[in-house]
Write a protein that binds this DNA or RNA. Structure first.
Lengths: 234, 234
DNA sequence: GCCTCAAGAGGCGCAACCGTCTCTTACCCT
DNA sequence: AGGGTAAGAGACGGTTGCGCCTCTTGAGGC
């Protein structure tokens, strides 16, 4: 009955079983969505029974949260090679490729539930967004040291636009994100913003801002140094 | 039992009832998600029974698709006032405000299902993305005629970045999108890209593109004139 | 004011899933 | 080798929603 074996004779335990369950949760999320995920479906896909699930987790929500915290695939940190465009292109392509795996479907399903599950949103930020944002910024710092990009953008949200737009295209058009879309995002949006183009001064005519709380954020977000996670300030 | 009346004595018919059902569907989508939406929940929230639902639609999927096609709230088309930044700021704020209503929650729920429901994705594009993209472009054409922005960006995806980023922030942080985020998106990303900053030429060193299919798309997307819907080419 | 139609309410059988449980049996430790 | 532990499988009662149904009653046309 197991989905991924033809007639396994061995009986898995411990970490091997755990990884199979995590993998099954991601696939179930991708296939059936958050609301459609069932414990029986996870058990069947993992080739196990419900008892091992309920022995480890008390509920579906706990299982999913734990999967986010410990069962998501990891990706290697980007490194600076001397050409920041090549590095970013590689990073965006890797990201787009990852979204074609169950990881992408799971992300889609999880994002639709974040307003009902703040703990899940926090976990996504802790596990996915902020670590990858930190790695990306470390790489861009090297690029900045070589004069390839403006240093002041590194601590701004501008850095995150590339992955954000790839993710957005994934969400609204589904995988795979075409390679030419990735290249366009990089060359038409990301590189111009990172390289030379400063921020636009609001038109000289009239009041510069009609906002209440513009402060420094509207002009130079995150200049305070922290508060610049991958997708949101922390 | 009805959610929105205290003890209605009247009995609604025709369009009044239809609108109540559409509204209930949107609220249910926002509250319970796509998988969590039930016909009984819709009926209860609309203050009606299941029979009027099944009299009009054969299934849950049909009801939801029809709601997308006929029950979504409309927004006034943006007009050019002489200052494109003010107009875009107003547009983005209006969009962000709309996302705090059940419309936003419904969009979140629907987007998580688009890979399973291509018809739904197509409906979203036909009803939401493309019409609004057309209106936005019409407004920007006026701005271009006044020399406020570069004319060549109007038929590119750059135009859509503003709404896209607001939507992305909504999806990953939940409503409401802070006003300073909107202002930052506008002044740090959208206006610089629309105004003066050309696209980046890939570094002179080495091969310009290591892509297979760069063609014209990587350098000047959508210069062919069509294929530039709000969120995707058509 | 009568008559028709459909709204509002909810019962019904069916199916799926939950969370618990029992039972057998493979794995691991000593 | 033997014994404890947990994996794999699935039965169970309970709950929930589906889709269909009936029934009563208010609304609107004539």
């Amino acid at each position: 009955m197991a989905a991924d074996d033809g007639g396994r004779r061995t009986r898995r335990r411990g970490d091997e079983l755990l990884q199979a369950i995590y993998s099954a949760v991601l696939s179930e999320l991708a296939d059936t969505g958050y609301g459609g995920l069932t414990m029986e479906g996870v058990a069947a896909r993992a080739g196990t029974g419900k008892a091992p699930l309920y022995r480890r987790w008390n509920s579906k929500d706990e299982l999913i949260l734990d999967t986010v915290q410990h069962g998501l695939p990891t990706s290697p940190a980007p490194t600076y090679s001397g050409n920041v465009r090549d590095d970013l292109l590689h990073l965006l392509r890797r990201f787009a490729a990852a979204l074609t795996t169950p990881f992408g479907g799971a992300m889609r399903a999880l994002l639709s539930e974040t307003h009902r599950r703040p703990d899940l949103l926090a976990a996504l930020h802790d596990i996915v967004f902020q670590p990858r944002g930190r790695e990306l910024r470390a790489m861009l710092r090297d690029a900045s040291d070589h004069g390839e990009i403006r240093p002041e953008v590194i601590d701004s949200h501008l850095v995150d636009i590339g992955p954000e737009m790839v993710m957005f295209r994934f969400l609204t058009e589904g995988p795979p994100v075409p390679d030419q879309t990735i290249v366009s995002i990089l060359d038409d949006v990301v590189m111009p913003l990172l390289r030379r183009c400063g921020k636009a001064e609001p038109e000289g005519s009239g009041g510069r801002f009609d906002d209440r709380q513009q402060g420094s954020a509207a002009r130079d977000p995150c200049q305070d140094g922290d508060g610049c996670g991958f997708l949101r300030g922390e």
